[in-house]
Design a protein around this nucleic acid. Structure first.
Lengths: 216, 216
DNA sequence: ATGGCTTGGATAGTGACACTCACCGATGGA
DNA sequence: TCCATCGGTGAGTGTCACTATCCAAGCCAT
């Protein structure tokens, strides 16, 4: 498979594929001679993953490179490989601009701690705010509070329970894949691509419920 | 309240507030004389909403303007006001580039139709793919399928049920607000700000479950 | 009243980012 | 032989959310 074929099969323009190669998002093909290279199915899969991360997940190119480096790092065990790859993903509401000490943020901190305790998520609890998802969650809750829409533990519990089920389901499907690299790729793809599914389901549900309550 | 006070209370820079005024995201203040204007709490609330949409929701300025126009349109009934505002929000995975006829997309279409039927979401079912959330959902499922991670109705049902509960809860809280405009503002803020909460809960759950299964 | 300040408003520029174009020399099929 | 095509590279483009600078008109302490 040549560059042009890769472009053909993926629908990604030639110039863009060259750009990804230059940026190290796509490994170079197997060189045939001085001016030609051969690409295979793994390149196609990787290209689609990159497109998903950039187009769907709006992940900056530099971050994509970082995530993929973890996915490709065969020296890591699966746990760290997954952890590193997923921690490198950007987390919503990151541009926190760190007030760090306003009342909303401290309230959000205790709220999340309380939530984790009631969920029994010991592992997560120990790692605490080293986890970027933890920090982003605190920031999001603080923003909601600051806008005048506070939440409490009881509000969050059912959502957390559902997300727990979702995570278990995700890992179930991941485990059937043959190689650790493919498992890591699946974890990243799932993290990025399943989010819009969830969010759009929520919007549809809002429309439905609104229609039921207020007619048409 | 002067421009500088608005900046002080919101943490948004003076230049940025001027930019928002220029772009019509913030209504002009009540003019006191040729060189000064007065702003009130509603401006502060609006400014925070705009910041939430742009920073957290990453919504383009032009789209924010459109959404706010619907929020402020007193001529609409509440249902249409909410619908218009929420439909104007961008929906994840929109840059579809419309193949429209590939097998993944048609499969996703029937999958969603099946899902809506089993959920009993008649209203949503009738409107069909006019709803941008519906189209975005189809696109997201098609992308997942194309990457080799297909989902079926049984996979999606529990998520949809949970989102249904979330939507009901959102509307409950919205109804206690006094004016239709504040209700519409709440709906937009909830749609934008609650999404990161959900997504980060999911990532935390993934980390927890992964730790439980594979140690550490 | 006057000089230094701030005010709201307008124009042009900045920086980040994801591409995209034009060009190069080498290559390989007709 | 010849010329389209290959992969690779440096510079340019378009978008977008700001942001720096300037301006004339008021306010306020001296």
């Amino acid at each position: 498979m040549r560059l042009a074929d890769l472009s053909e099969h993926s629908g990604v323009s030639l110039a863009t594929i060259k750009y990804y190669l230059r940026e190290g998002l796509l490994p170079p093909g197997r060189r045939i001679n001085a001016t030609q290279a051969e690409y295979d199915e793994s390149h196609l899969r990787r290209l689609r993953l990159v497109r998903a991360m950039i187009q769907v997940g709006r992940i900056p190119v530099a971050t994509v490179r970082e995530v993929l480096a973890h996915v490709d790092d065969d020296s890591l065990g699966l746990t760290f490989r997954l952890g590193a790859a997923l921690w490198a993903l950007p987390h919503p509401t990151e541009p926190s601009s760190d007030p760090e000490d306003d009342p909303s943020t401290t309230a959000a901190h205790t709220l999340v701690a309380d939530l984790l305790a009631r969920l029994g998520w010991r592992t997560t609890c120990e790692v605490g705010d080293l986890n970027p998802a933890h920090r982003a969650l605190v920031a999001a809750l603080a923003t909601l509070d600051r806008l005048g829409y506070p939440l409490d533990t009881d509000d969050l519990l059912p959502y957390a329970r559902t997300m727990e089920q979702a995570a278990a389901y995700d890992l179930d499907r991941m485990e059937v894949l043959p190689t650790p690299r493919e498992q890591a790729e699946y974890a990243v793809a799932g993290a990025v691509l399943f989010e819009p599914v969830l969010l759009n389901l929520r919007r549809l549900a809002q429309a439905e419920e609104s229609g039921r309550r207020y007619g048409l």
